[in-house]
């Protein structure tokens, strides 16, 4: 796309704040973190976030921040597109809507009308609603419709992990592409917390995962935290069916295992790109990414690679992963 940043406001030049929380400690903290931002007081976050006739791609060039108080529900059942890792109670929780990064395959583009980031400031209310479920093992994905570690101005990751450290049945999954490991270094490793890093070849990062850290930075973060005793899962997911797939992905997997100590990794998940067909249709309208125009197979309202091709993509990478990790630690999205 042809545009110049010279004509644009910087991201977070504007912060929209719900009037009801305008004086709260969280909002004051955020105002201090973005001292140049213009503050616009609003009634409800949906008045801005859910406006009709927004342009996701245009807003992505200059993001605004919307601060709000989340109303119930605070927990949602995990999606069919995600691995529940065998937990009967599997929830995701939207501490934030939308993401700092700009991955061309991201379903958020097709899910929300707005690219602006909504940050819910009442994290304690999420904990209150979760407590009744914690009489049995429960998995909560806290970085779901966002990448919480990439943009965490209220230290919600620390709040969640501190809460988890006191709840024996609470398991946390924090999925990320971030290289920002410092907030975690300040905390004690917890075996019930899984840090799930999405890894991609550098050429794929350059072409499709805009504004994300390099592969090397992600590997450095993993090395630091797994070395400190954190439970780390690496995710070759989503893999993209690109030209020269094998010559891009196979050396990449070798590179990852040459950098990381596989015995310190809890799991490796392998999956190919898939997306709800409704979201795909919305992304196609943006005419932004070639990925949206791949001739996918549609099954049960999900767009995915044709079966034979999908099996090839997964198995060719799985074979290499199995040279480094035992089969019980390797999960593929197909097997669910």
């Amino acid at each position: 796309m042809n545009y110049s940043s010279h004509h644009l406001n910087e991201s977070f030049s504007h912060i929209y704040v719900e009037k009801s929380i305008a004086g709260s400690k969280s909002v004051l903290t955020l105002k201090n973190k973005f001292p140049k931002a213009k503050i616009v007081e609003i009634g409800h976050y949906k008045d801005v976030f859910n406006r009709p006739s927004q342009e996701y791609r245009e807003q992505k060039k200059s993001l605004s921040l919307i601060l709000a108080r989340k109303e119930e529900p605070y927990l949602y059942k995990g999606s069919q597109f995600s691995d529940d890792f065998g937990f009967e109670n599997f929830f995701y929780t939207p501490s934030m809507l939308n993401c700092l990064y700009d991955c061309e395959y991201c379903y958020l583009q097709g899910m929300y009308q707005s690219a602006n980031i909504v940050l819910f400031t009442n994290t304690e209310d999420f904990f209150t609603q979760l407590k009744p479920y914690l009489d049995k093992p429960t998995l909560v994905a806290i970085s779901y419709d966002t990448d919480l570690l990439a943009f965490d101005p209220l230290n919600q990751v620390s709040q969640w992990l501190s809460f988890a450290s006191k709840q024996e049945n609470l398991n946390i999954e924090l999925r990320t592409k971030s290289a920002n490991y410092r907030p975690l270094q300040k905390l004690n490793p917890n075996d019930r917390v899984t840090l799930a890093w999405t890894l991609s070849p550098q050429s794929i990062i350059d072409k499709y995962e805009h504004k994300t850290p390099s592969l090397q930075k992600r590997l450095n973060a993993i090395k630091t935290l797994s070395g400190a005793g954190w439970r780390v899962r690496i995710c070759f997911d989503p893999m993209l069916d690109v030209e020269n797939f094998s010559s891009i992905y196979e050396p990449f997997v070798d590179e990852v295992f040459s950098e990381l100590d596989a015995s310190r990794l809890s799991e490796c998940t392998i999956g190919t790109f898939r997306i709800g067909n409704k979201h795909l249709k919305n992304i196609k309208k943006m005419q932004h990414s070639a990925l949206a125009f791949y001739p996918y197979t549609i099954q049960n309202e999900m767009a995915l690679y044709p079966e034979k091709r999908n099996s090839y993509l997964i198995n060719s990478i799985k074979d290499i992963v199995l040279q480094h990790m035992p089969i019980e630690k390797v999960r593929t999205w197909q097997e669910q």
Binding site: H6, H7, L8, N9, S13, H14, Y16, K38, V40, I42, G43, D47, V48, R51, Q54, E55, E58, Q59, K61, S62, S64
Partner: peptide
């Protein structure tokens, strides 16, 4: 009702 134009354009005016 309130309306919100997107504030994408850089400018030198007070808001």
């Amino acid at each position: 009702k309130d309306f919100y134009p997107d504030m994408l354009l850089r400018h030198n005016f007070r808001e």
